[in-house]
Structures are given as C-alpha cells and as structure tokens.
Design a protein around this nucleic acid. Sequence first.
DNA 1: TAAATAGTTTATTAATTATTAAACAATTGA
DNA 2: TCAATTGTTTAATAATTAATAAACTATTTA
Lengths: 99, 99
Amino acid sequence: MREFFHPDLNDIKVEQVLYALSDPTRLAIVKRLYESGEQSCARFEDLGKKSNLSHHYRTLRECGLIYIRRDGRHSYMTLRQEEMNQRFPGFLESVVKAQ
Amino acid sequence: MREFFHPDLNDIKVEQVLYALSDPTRLAIVKRLYESGEQSCARFEDLGKKSNLSHHYRTLRECGLIYIRRDGRHSYMTLRQEEMNQRFPGFLESVVKAQ
DNA sequence: TAAATAGTTTATTAATTATTAAACAATTGA
DNA sequence: TCAATTGTTTAATAATTAATAAACTATTTA
C-alpha cells in the first residue's frame, strides 16, 4: 500500500494554498473537514465524480492543507489545521468562516 | 474619463479573492499596497510588462481587493483594507504576513 | 496643435488547469 | 479464488488563464 507524499510545514507555499482554496469544490471539502474532522472520500461524493474529486484531494494534499491516510480500501482525510495555524496564523479560520 | 467598476462589499466572493492572491505578481502588488498605502501603477513596473500588469490590476480590482482611481493620466491603487477586514476578518493580514 | 506620457483594451497565442472515462491497484467479502 | 468495493492514476479533450504586442484613450507638455 503506497503512502502519499505530504510536504513539510516549511515547504508549504502560501500561493499554492490560496490557489487550492480558490476552487469551490476544494473549499467545500476543506470546510467540511474543518467542521467535522476526519472524513473518508465517500463523504464527498455529492461534490462531483470520483476521479475528479481524487484530483482535488491531491491538490489539497500537495499544497499542504490536508493529510490523507489509507486504511484498507478507504482513504481518510484530515485538515492539517494546527500546522497551518503555526505557519500562517489565523489564515485558515478566516477562510473557512468567510460567508 | 471613464471610471472603473468596483464591486460592492457584499458582492465580494472569497473564492475570487483567494484566486487573485494566488498569483505571485498580484500577491506582491497587494503586499506593497499593504505596506506603503496608495501607489501609482508606475511603482510596479519592476514586476512585469505594463499590459500584463494592467490585467493583474483588473483582476485585483474586480475581485474587490483594490480600489483604483484615475487622476490625470495616472491610476492610483489602494487596498480596500477596512472593507476586506469587515467582510473577512483577519484574512488579509494573515495573507500579507505569511512568510 | 503636435508629441509625449501613462495606462487600458483588444486580439492572439501559449500555457495551465479541469473534467471525464477507462484502466489500474489494493483490499475485502462471498 | 472470484467478484465487488474504494479509491487512484493515466490519457485525452475541453476550458481557463497568462502573457505579449499592437492599437487605443485621455491627459499633459512643448
């Protein structure tokens, strides 16, 4: 079972994070993770087709916003909330709370 | 002398703001405006060619981040800092201070 | 009035990104 | 073991966005 790449905290680029969050689907994913904690991919099927969603997960993972672990045939995602807050204080909260 | 369109505070979309800021040139413009206040376009010529910059100004203006006024043959830009802070508290500061 | 200035807009081409379907991999359950 | 499940990846096409040059507008200065 291959593991996913996750960037180190210090390699996270704010431009990439901003870009990842500028897509409505990806922003919706992040908001749900912020509100409900760890979720499996199945929870987001209402947001699009699975191959498209999988690309979005990758964008979110590679920019450093989320962590994905595999368990059996499931993938579980969490926000890297504490790390983001350490690196960009106040940023993530201001975005997910934007109305 | 035609005036520019500027969206109302309530029409500002966080996705569009995030997208506008995800470009390195536009982010650099916003950081300078944050630090130095109103600037004319001439102050950003080191960041690219003028027609390209003009497109970037437009993106920043249309998403609601900056205000552009014309005076003679010059255009002067300011960040809509108070409004952004009213609409998305803490957001702009967290972005411009991101290292 | 003519030329220069300061920037904007249009049109074109190049480069990125998004979306989909189909193939694939790993795991689980019958 | 075979089929189903749960995603991921690849490959292709469609759609967006970026960058540039050239034309344009309004203003100012000579």
